[in-house]
């Protein structure tokens, strides 16, 4: 955790006037807490679905970044009741479609089979399927692009850059990896 050292620097910056408040060491990656709005099997399935959207390669996929937990949390806390129903129905539809098309569970399918299932759900006459795929895909992308992994490694996010340059060549940023 870098926070403590950041704050030590801060204390030095302003002449040692600052004592570290309690929150300076309070946070840990687990402090967001687990979300348990789904049965364990359903949560596992959702993990496989987000992983299908953004799979592990040489870099982390959505499942290892716990994007399914993020999606569950957002649906529970920030969306209305219909989204919760869309989630439940969609998981059931996904598993049912897997049974019909590949004769095994969604999680047992390979990447191509899984993508075909989600694509067919998205195109199916049942609007619940498309609503589910759209919802989870949107949340997966949002969660992934705002994860620590993504912001630090792709966006080169710097919380306190200490500067702003209004007009820099794109080519220069590509070299320095700045943002």
């Amino acid at each position: 955790m870098q926070r403590r050292s950041l704050l030590k620097n801060l204390a030095l910056t302003v002449g040692g006037l600052v004592s570290l408040p309690a929150w300076a060491t309070g946070w840990s990656p687990d402090s967001l807490g687990a979300v348990s709005t789904l049965a364990p099997d359903d949560e596992t399935l959702l993990g496989e679905i987000v992983e299908t959207f953004i799979p592990e390669t040489t870099t982390p996929g959505a499942k290892s970044l716990k994007i399914h937990q993020f999606a569950m949390r957002m649906i529970r806390d920030c969306y209305d009741q219909t989204a919760q129903a869309t989630l439940q129905q969609g998981l059931a539809l996904t598993e049912a479609t897997a049974g019909q098309t590949i004769n095994k569970s969604f999680g047992s399918g390979n990447a191509a089979e899984r993508m075909a299932i989600l694509t067919s759900l998205s195109a199916s006459a049942d609007s619940a399927g498309k609503a589910f795929v759209d919802l989870i895909k949107r949340l997966t992308i949002q969660g992934y692009m705002n994860s620590e992994f993504y912001l630090v490694n792709v966006e080169k996010f710097n919380m306190a850059p200490g500067f702003y340059h209004g007009c820099v060549p794109v080519a220069k940023l590509a070299v320095t990896g700045g943002k």
Binding site: P21, W23, D77, C78, L151
Partner: peptide, 23 residues
């Protein structure tokens, strides 16, 4: 400082990435 509990939090540390809950 003492009473700015979120001031050093990184964006990914917020449970809803900054969004307000429905409640």
């Amino acid at each position: 400082i003492t009473d700015y509990p979120t001031t050093m939090m990184q964006p990914w540390e917020f449970a809803h990435l900054g969004q307000l809950s429905k409640e």
